[in-house]
């Protein structure tokens, strides 16, 4: 990366709430704060990782950023324009530059369309190529993702999970995007196929100068592929920092416990490392805890944590954290 990173996307106080059903016929309508006040930049050419457990709002964040779900509030600045304020038509045109790859390559490809049509439709919609040029471009895209161009005439069910994910990647690449949200792109794949797709995503990023928001629950994969990593819990960011600093010196108790919970494929290390096992479950986002949302499971929580919401602050250059006691170790706490 260059010395002064340029923000491709600037997200400010992003909020996405979903209404819950009324309590009774005339009762008040509540809301689930799936994404609750996120502020961050995505730098051009980087991979920003977004990790957290299921239900923490990481997928909703990815979708809200490219407005596949409409944010309740906040700004998403891309090329000087606030995406949240655009009309649907303007947004549709801009979506050419903002693409997504989904986790489930079975559900995200239409089973009734041939691969060529799945990829070619994006070219048609954005008037990028027609006729023979479109067919040629589809063949080229299939080749780029490591598939045989003749596969264009086949249907998705004829392919394995890994091949289908390659088709999903080709579909996202078809419109020459700047930015791709990768929403758990390898979680559903077999272990021996994962490395292939990770390598493909990295190669494409280098060749096509892509920027990724990489959503995952696997901290080892994120460590491998990301330049910076954000850790999310119950709709909020807990910590955001450069990859190396986050793993070497996690400042938030939740990050520390997440890293400690991941099993490592090395017996000696597994035997010797101290495990910090969080008690309890993730609270329901319908009724999040007061103060710091993590306090109910935090091994170092104090009274202050139950009452005051910790500020999102930059404790070291580029290292952001939301914790009253950031930096305190939870080992043997």
């Amino acid at each position: 990366m260059t010395s002064a990173p340029e923000a491709l996307l600037s997200v400010r106080d992003l909020r996405t709430y979903f209404p819950t059903s009324r309590k009774g016929l005339f009762g008040p309508r509540g809301s689930v704060k799936a994404v609750d006040g996120l502020t961050f930049d995505v730098y051009r050419g980087e991979t920003l990782g977004l990790v957290g457990e299921s239900g923490c709002g990481k997928s909703t964040t990815g979708r809200a950023v490219i407005r596949l779900v409409r944010p309740t509030g906040g700004e998403v600045i891309y090329n000087g324009r606030d995406l949240t304020q655009l009309s649907d038509g303007e947004m549709r045109r801009l979506r050419q530059k903002l693409q997504i790859i989904f986790q489930d390559a079975y559900a995200s490809l239409s089973s009734r369309m041939r691969v060529g049509a799945i990829i070619g439709d994006a070219l048609a919609i954005h008037n990028l190529a027609s006729g023979r040029a479109r067919a040629a471009r589809v063949g080229e895209l299939l080749h780029i993702v490591g598939l045989d161009p003749s596969f264009a005439s086949r249907y998705p069910h004829e392919f394995s999970g890994g091949q289908r994910q390659r088709i999903g990647i080709a579909r996202a690449l078809a419109v020459n995007p700047d930015f791709i949200v990768c929403d758990e792109p390898i979680s559903a794949l077999d272990v021996s196929i994962r490395a292939q797709i990770i390598n493909l995503l990295e190669d494409l990023q280098r060749e096509l100068k892509l920027t990724y928001l990489f959503i995952a629950h696997d901290l080892a994969v994120v460590r491998h592929i990301c330049d910076r990593v954000a850790v999310m819990y119950l709709g909020k960011f807990m910590e955001l920092s450069a990859n190396q600093a986050l793993y070497a010196e996690p400042l938030h108790p939740y990050t520390q416990s997440l890293i400690s919970a991941v099993p490592v494929p090395d017996p000696d290390l597994e035997d010797s490392r101290q495990r910090i096992i969080l008690s309890g479950d993730v609270p329901s986002p319908v009724n999040p805890p007061s103060g710091c949302v993590f306090h109910t499971r935090c091994p170092i929580a104090r009274d202050q944590c139950k009452q005051e919401i910790p500020a999102w602050r930059e404790v070291k250059p580029g290292h952001w954290v939301a914790c009253h006691f950031a930096g305190e170790s939870i080992a043997r706490a």
Binding site: S160, G162, Q163, V191, S192, I193, R194, A195, Q196, I198, N199, E202, D218, L219, A220, V221, R223, H224, I225, N243, Q244, Y247, I259, V262, V264, P265, D266, L269
Partner: peptide, 19 residues
């Protein structure tokens, strides 16, 4: 081929080819 939590980011994962 498995990315490791305890390793610094390497250049490229040695992958098993094919299916």
């Amino acid at each position: 081929s498995v990315p490791r939590l305890d390793r610094v980011r390497s250049n490229r994962l040695p992958q098993i080819e094919g299916l």
